[in-house]
Every structure is written in structure tokens, then in C-alpha cells.
């Protein structure tokens, strides 16, 4: 019954596992802020932004 929202449910499950633990390896090695920091955390942030965008898109 939830088939139309399978992409949304997948996004929710992925986002539920998000925490600062994902960026600790980056922040532990760098004190960068601003654009340099944003570049370093891009691999972590990009998938999150994709999931968030999916949750804004109507399915039916």
C-alpha cells in the first residue's frame, strides 16, 4: 500500500541514521570553517540534500 512512497520511506530510513558522527572524521583533522569546511563535508552533505529534495517531491 505504501508502494508510491517507497522513495520517501527509503529517504526517511537513511536520514534517521544521520548524526554528527558522519562528520567527526573530517572535523577531527581540520578546524576549517566557511567555504573550506563546506568543501570538505560535501560527500556527507550531498546525499542528505538529495534525500531531503526527494521528500519534497509529490508521488501521486
Amino acid at each position: 500500500m505504501l508502494q508510491p512512497w517507497s522513495r520517501d520511506l527509503e529517504a526517511i530510513k537513511e536520514l534517521a541514521a544521520v548524526s554528527e558522527q558522519s562528520v567527526i572524521p573530517v572535523f577531527a583533522r581540520s578546524t576549517a570553517i566557511g567555504s573550506l569546511m563546506r568543501r570538505k563535508i560535501e560527500p556527507v552533505v550531498t546525499p542528505i540534500l538529495e534525500h531531503l529534495e526527494a521528500l519534497k517531491t509529490p508521488r501521486t
Binding site: 536520514l15 544521520v18 548524526s19 572535523f27 578546524t31 570553517i33 563546506r38
Partner: peptide, 29 residues
């Protein structure tokens, strides 16, 4: 979600990133 996208598109400091990511996990868990 919209506010979250704005933050993650241009976070200023490491504390902002850490607390935002924790908020995401708390919101969806």
C-alpha cells in the same frame, strides 16, 4: 525540510553542521 536545506547549503561553522546533523537524526528516527 526547507530550512534544513538552506542550512546545509551554506553552514558557517562546524558546530552548526554537527547540531544540524543531530537534529536530522532526531527528527526522522
Amino acid at each position: 525540510i526547507e530550512a534544513l536545506q538552506e542550512i546545509l547549503a551554506r553552514p558557517e561553522t562546524q558546530e552548526v553542521v554537527s547540531r544540524t546533523l543531530n537534529a536530522i537524526g532526531g527528527f526522522f528516527s
